[in-house]
């Protein structure tokens, strides 16, 4: 867990950090991390470098550099199809933002009830909540499609967004329950003694403290929605509604001509918003809380 090796002395006369050279330790630590990162990310780095190679040289070898550097894959990829990727990106953003908002709202209120309130039927409902996660989603695809077709929601974003507003992602509810339960109960007990109602306790005390859980949920929802392929495939027919993964899939054709160059280029671009969102959300949420700390 740390890079320093410790003597097992129960008592230490000097603070430990003085026993090793802090600069050296930092250098070693960074070197180790960077080594691990290079090994882990080599495939991704390769993908980025391949996206700058001419279409028909993409699978030639494991090296990173090609003398024939080109931006064609990005240009052609972006403008492919009757529309272009700017439309797919916009659509993906719309679906993602609406899904995140719904998930945060629905999952947090549900989680608060399960984590902090006692009510009859709680055990049963909580078991039901967990139960909904245990069935492989593949078998509910067809009944769900039938349902959304009956509701005439095909060719709209409703099947992709609306369920999130009703807390169908039990995973996130469970996650938030675990987070909230690890918060000391004294906090809301004292707020209650001060006369706060449940809604105020939820919004003023629990939510600010559960920021890491909210950040995590937002992050995961972003990734899941952004990368979701099957949902958009089933529910969106018209190209002007397509999301990024559908656009990416259209570069592949098992029966004709595939465009791996454009595929890699657009895959790289589609990673950018998630990485960006991650950096922003962890700055705002993880770091923000750490500095405030718990009272």
């Amino acid at each position: 867990m740390t890079t320093t090796t410790l003597p097992k002395a129960p008592l230490q006369i000097y603070p430990r950090r003085k026993t090793t050279n802090p600069v050296l330790a930092a250098v070693i630590r960074h070197a180790l991390i960077i080594c691990a990162l290079v090994i882990m990310l080599y495939p991704v780095i390769w993908m980025v470098s391949a996206s700058f190679r001419p279409e028909n040289e993409i699978f030639n070898g494991l090296g990173l550099f090609s003398p024939n550097f080109t931006l064609d894959n990005y240009v052609n990829g972006w403008t492919s199809g009757s529309l272009n990727f700017s439309r797919y990106f916009l659509n993906s953003f719309l679906v993602t933002v609406l899904s995140i908002a719904g998930n945060l709202l629905a999952c947090s209120v549900t989680a608060y009830a399960f984590a902090r309130l006692s009510f009859p039927g709680k055990k049963f409902l909580f078991a039901l909540l967990l139960g909904t996660m245990l069935l492989p989603s593949q078998v509910t695809l067809v009944p769900q499609y039938i349902l959304f077709n009956k509701l005439e929601w095909i060719n709209t974003y409703l099947p992709l967004v609306v369920p999130h507003w009703f807390g169908v992602d039990a995973f996130f509810i469970f996650l938030m329950v675990q987070f909230i339960r690890s918060l000391p109960r004294e906090l809301d007990e004292s707020a209650r003694l001060d006369g706060c109602g449940h809604f105020r306790i939820f919004s003023r005390i629990i939510m600010p403290l559960a920021m890491p859980a909210i950040g995590t949920t937002a992050m995961f929802t972003f990734i899941n929605t952004w990368n979701d392929f099957l949902g958009p495939l089933l529910y969106l027919n018209r190209t002007d509604l397509w999301t990024v993964p559908l656009g990416l899939n259209s570069f592949l054709d098992a029966t004709g001509e595939s465009s791996y160059g454009a595929l890699f280029a657009m895959s790289v671009l589609s990673l950018a918003p998630i990485v960006g969102f991650f950096i922003v959300s962890q700055r705002l949420l993880l770091e923000g809380v750490a500095t405030t700390g718990l009272k």
């Binding site: 209120v109 549900t110 608060y112 309130l117 909540l129 009703f166 807390g167």
Partner: peptide, 11 residues
């Protein structure tokens, strides 16, 4: 209990 079920409505 009532508050709990209000919180649980969406779910």
């Amino acid at each position: 209990a009532i508050a709990a079920y209000v919180f649980l409505i969406p779910w």
